[in-house]
Amino acid sequence: MGYVLSRDSFTRVLKKIGQSRRIYAPVNKVGEGRFTDVDVVRYDFVTEAPEIELDKKSDYAFKEILTPLSQTLFFFTEDEVKEADMDEREVIIFLRSCDLHAVKRLDAIYLENKFVDPFYKRIRDKVRFALIGCGRSYEDCFCVSMGTNRADGGYLFSVDMIGGKYYFDVKDDELAAIFASEAESEQAVEARYVTENEVKVTIPGNVPVSVYKDPLWEEYTVRCINCGRCNFVCPTCTCFTMQDIFYTDNGRVGERRRVGASCMVDGYTNVAGGGQYRRTNGERMRFKVLHKIHDFRKRFGFDMCVGCGRCDMVCPEYISYANIINKVNDAVEGGAVNG
């Protein structure tokens, strides 16, 4: 069912929905960007409509609730282990189509990759989605190339803000009643989606081993500063590392934490004895890119990258990952032509 609501009535809906649930949405954090007087859009819990940033694309992805940047898994003493408490309420996450497609990638890694990750599962089970329609393509988006520009299902309702009014396509019956009680009017609503992006990529079919040795990667050894920002903003990067923290000198009381990791930063491939598999930034870039558009597909049947473009948007060195995909494709096609 489609409904049109004012800002205030949308807030009332959120309050009603929020009685038993938490609402997690993109929020424009004033002045919290990297530079002075620069905002950043990242996810947080909200209670009112104006808090939700529906216009700008979020700089950081929704994944922080499913795979927190830093999460205490359990506490331990000498003879006891206690799992960290968690909020048992259902969560509704507001996200765009590319991000909704990213959930499938996270699920693949955490639920379908031989083992089920219990810490992911316990929060994932509580999560539902609300789709934010895309009225325009943003700089750096290439969702159309990745086939993630449109969401068919998998969400409770969609929201589009047009001219100060909010348009909802509500798929869930229980919520439909709440929306209906606040709606200015009922009409057919379809979530907006884009059909073309300025940035286009061509995903190579099979990537031959020769591409691993291609000189195209060398440039990034020099250009990339291995800051990992591209990983931390990515909705599909899932790597983490474990930390055992001891509160006391005797080392018998403490906690186990899981923190986000990046395949670009130093230390990621360190192994005992001081070895490091991927020393240069070019090698790390090769690993990242091929994982996103090739290796993952070999295992799961679809590409990991959803084309949200956040990695391009955040890179301080103006490295375009989208452009790298096209370079890889050229290398593959060139290679094919050259035999």
Partner: peptide
């Protein structure tokens, strides 16, 4: 601290 991943940058 909840956003810190100990990357030490």
């Amino acid at each position: 601290p909840n956003r810190c991943v100990s990357c030490e940058q």
